[in-house]
Amino acid sequence: MSRLRPPLKVALARSVDDLPRGPFAYEPKFDGHRVLIFRTPGGALLQARSGRLVGEAFPDLVEAAHALPDGTVLDGEVVVWSEGRTDFAAVQKRAMATASRAVLLAGRLPASYAAFDLLAVGDEDLRALPYEHRRARLVELLSPLGPPLQPVPVTTDPREAATWYETLPRIGVEGLVVKPLGLPYRGGRRDWQKLRHADTRDAVVVGVTGSPERPRALALVLPGDDTPVISRPLAPGLRLRMAEALAGAAEPGEPGPDTGEAADGTVFRRVPGELAVEVRRTTTRQPLTEVLRLRIPG
């Protein structure tokens, strides 16, 4: 069997301002939950970008992974579709579910897996192969299976990629990931490029600093990652609106720890519900996350 086992570092992308042109592959950038799937002789393991195992939260994907050959390792994004659009808040609700609720949520909010790389099959480690070879193997492997495990669309035509960039936001796809055709898969390296439609994105509120009644800043989970980050201090108006939203967002039956720890070590108080906010994320050496507005479900 493949020597690859979790935790495994994932390949990363750096932000660019213009559409790169050259011998590239262009893929839609789904804002979901980055997950590696490991098919093992005893079943399947799901690893988040942080290295945490998250299979209990996605039992539908664990079951689907049983159709893969032993030793298969996939890299991709877990997404949930709602009314024809991807719904990041729904993905995060799935990711945060307790084991007892995960099966119920799998029926209400079924997960799809948008696979964009194949790292291993059987006893073959494919990471040293060029991207275009791995992509061909990925399509060959997944095409007979169908949903919920599917390869992401891809084009090598920059004109078609530009059309995707302009038209796909209506279904919740906010940009493109650009990959050199001849590049190997290098975990932890920012060899890929990502072009977003804007410098804003949605994030899910998982906690606060201060108290729910008087929040100073928010603990947020951003698309593609499961490690919370702390926002910049909230403006006074946002503090008031967030306190009001939290007061009405409690959802019974979700036991869990009262506190959590963000990527920078900040301890925050967990909050219930599934509130989403729009944020601006800087690309400096020490990125800052500014909350722009709440996205309250209507």
Rank of each mutant, 00 (worst) to 15 (best):
V271T: 07
L119C: 04
P297N: 09
L129C: 01
P59I: 08
A203Q: 04
A44F: 07
D125Y: 05
A102Q: 06
D17V: 14
Q193E: 14
G253D: 11
G265F: 11
G76T: 07
V291F: 07
A128F: 06
E166N: 08
P6L: 05
L218A: 05
A247R: 13
S231P: 09
L36C: 01
L222D: 03
A162R: 13
V154D: 04
A243T: 03
R85D: 09
S112G: 12
P272V: 07
R239F: 08
Q193M: 15
P151R: 00
R214D: 14
H197F: 00
P130W: 08
E251G: 00
A249E: 14
L149H: 01
V121Q: 04
P272Q: 06
L46I: 12
R21S: 10
G248C: 09
A111T: 14
V291E: 04
T156Y: 13
V79L: 03
E132C: 09
T259N: 00
R239G: 02
I296G: 03
P228V: 09
A99Y: 03
V206P: 01
P228W: 01
L288H: 12
A203L: 09
L288D: 12
L246W: 07
S82Q: 13
P69N: 06
A111W: 01
P144A: 08
P7L: 08
E251I: 12
A13P: 06
R159A: 15
S112F: 03
R159C: 09
T155S: 13
K179G: 00
P7S: 04
V277T: 08
I230F: 01
V62M: 07
P158Y: 07
E174G: 14
R216A: 13
V10E: 02
V62D: 01
D60P: 04
Y185C: 04
T266W: 04
E244H: 12
R94L: 10
D18M: 13
T98H: 11
W192P: 02
R170A: 14
L36R: 00
E251L: 10
L104Y: 12
V35T: 15
G260Y: 02
G172H: 11
G237H: 12
R108Q: 14
P180N: 10
F268M: 04
F58R: 02
Q150H: 05
L19C: 13
T155A: 02
P23W: 10
R52F: 02
R85S: 14
E132H: 14
R190L: 06
A245F: 08
L149E: 01
L126S: 02
G224K: 03
T266I: 09
T289Q: 03
V208M: 07
M1D: 02
A67Q: 12
V177E: 02
A161K: 04
R134K: 12
E27Y: 03
I230K: 00
G122H: 10
R232A: 13
L138N: 02
L68P: 07
L234M: 13
L36F: 10
A64R: 01
D87L: 04
V204K: 00
T284R: 14
Q47V: 10
S231Y: 05
D226K: 02
L19T: 14
A198L: 11
P169H: 11
R159V: 15
V271R: 01
G265Y: 10
